[in-house]
């Protein structure tokens, strides 16, 4: 998935995460994370963000995330939506986790 423009998803509400994805010329993901639970969950949140991008095939992007204690499922959802918007795509494949397996 190629990032073409700035894509944003999420809010600054408690239990949500605001994700901003923008194009980057060079290979790799440049991630900045600010989190209200960074001390306890920082590495875990980074892992979920990077893992979600990888599964979408995003390899070049600059990502800014401001987390207010979102659960992993919310982080995954917000990152996906931001990436689809930034890639100008709306062909999201809806499926449940169970169906995937």
């Amino acid at each position: 998935m190629q990032i073409l423009e700035v894509g944003v998803a999420g809010t600054m509400e408690s239990s949500d995460i605001m994700v901003r994805i923008e194009p980057k010329d060079t290979e790799g993901i440049e991630l900045t994370l600010e989190s209200s639970v960074g001390q306890q969950y920082g590495p875990q949140i980074r892992r979920v963000i990077l893992e979600t991008l990888r599964s979408l095939g995003v390899t070049k992007a600059k990502v800014d995330a401001v987390d207010k204690g979102a659960l992993d499922c919310a982080i995954e959802a917000r990152v996906s939506v931001a990436a689809f918007r930034a890639a100008r795509r709306d062909d999201y494949q809806w499926k449940t986790k169970g169906a995937e397996a």
Binding site: Q39, Y41, P43, Q44, L71
Partner: peptide
């Protein structure tokens, strides 16, 4: 299960 295991405080 919902939150994940928090890293211990330093």
């Amino acid at each position: 299960r919902l939150c994940g295991k928090p890293a211990p405080n330093d």
